[in-house]
């Protein structure tokens, strides 16, 4: 897993998994459809990405689909960093 994906994965584990929840989060683990992140709490992930990578992700692009896996989130971040 590259740096970007690892940073996203680590944030997801820290921010969304409860203590004692030993689910593994991999590059393709469904986060939203898998019930780890819900659309209500997703905003902090978006803000984390925007801050850490100095990007702006328009709300229209921050869809549950785009945020469903570490891979898809990484692709989104890459797209906006290249901007």
């Amino acid at each position: 897993m590259d740096e970007l994906k690892k940073a996203i994965r680590d944030y997801v584990v820290k921010e969304y998994l409860e203590e004692g929840d030993d689910r593994q989060v991999g590059e393709d683990t469904p986060l939203i459809t898998g019930g780890i992140v819900d659309s209500f709490s997703m905003v902090s992930l978006k803000r984390f990405l925007e801050r850490k990578y100095s990007i702006q992700i328009p709300d229209a692009e921050a869809t549950p689909q785009a945020f469903d896996t570490v891979n898809s989130i990484a692709a989104l971040v890459t797209r906006f960093t290249k901007g």
Binding site: Y16, E18, E19, F40, S41, V43, S44, R47
Partner: peptide, 9 residues
């Protein structure tokens, strides 16, 4: 701005 915390954490 909206933010959330883990349930009762």
């Amino acid at each position: 701005m909206q933010d959330t915390f883990k349930h009762s954490d």
